[in-house]
């Protein structure tokens, strides 16, 4: 795929991506900025070797939102835990994480790792195959001789465990403020 083709694809997908970003919780202006951002990042890149370039652009947009969420959460952690000592940070600027932020991250990751270690063997194995070895669910089902829906059930359980572990740690560090429009509070 040439640069020109990449550009064309991007332009044709632009309205859909903007809509997706708005649905992900970005404001109208923010969504347009993010699409622009994405375009600049991808400009000049060839998307050859990517099986489904349209899906790839969606994924890139999704990751962009997650990056923003992560830096917003970091700011929030700093402000709530460290009494507003942090220097003012402009929107969209991801500062060098402070030692404190890294410590919170570390605590959270330890909690996630512990939660994973406590999973039943079968669930752990399926999760490892899917998440770390990148095996499609269908292949896992075939290899283990179980149904596709059984595989999904194990994965649901593993993911719920991870989400719960993360929720517990974050509840310790942040006030229950929503971080996105329509956001609900995390802790009761």
């Amino acid at each position: 795929m040439t640069d020109e083709a990449t550009k064309e694809l991007f332009l044709s997908l632009r309205p859909a991506l903007t809509r997706f970003l708005a649905a992900r919780g970005l404001g109208t202006d923010e969504a347009q900025d993010a699409v622009q951002d994405l375009f600049l990042k991808l400009d000049g890149m060839r998307l050859e070797g990517i099986a489904d370039p349209r899906a790839y652009l969606y994924r890139a947009a999704d990751n962009l939102v997650l990056d923003r969420r992560r830096s917003a959460l970091r700011r929030l952690n700093r402000e709530t835990r460290w009494g507003g000592l942090a220097a003012p940070i402009g929107p969209g600027i991801d500062p060098q994480p402070s030692i404190e932020t890294l410590l919170i991250d570390r605590e959270r990751l330890t909690a996630v790792a512990d939660a994973l270690a406590a999973l039943p063997d079968r669930t752990a194995d399926i999760f490892r195959r899917f998440r770390l070895l990148g095996e499609p669910q269908r292949d896992i089902a075939g290899a283990l001789g179980i149904s596709l829906s059984a595989v999904e059930k194990h994965l649901q359980r593993a993911y719920a465990t991870v989400v719960d572990a993360r929720r517990r740690i974050d509840a310790d560090f942040t006030h229950p403020r929503g971080h996105s429009p329509g956001g609900e509070s995390d802790a009761a």
Binding site: R24, V112, R131, Y159, V162, V163, P181, G182, E184
Partner: peptide, 20 residues
């Protein structure tokens, strides 16, 4: 409106697995 928030939580936790 709650769907996006729920997905955020799941996706961020999913990324944490890589870090962890």
């Amino acid at each position: 409106p709650g769907n996006a928030t729920a997905y955020d939580r799941v996706a961020l936790a999913d990324q944490d697995v890589e870090f962890a």
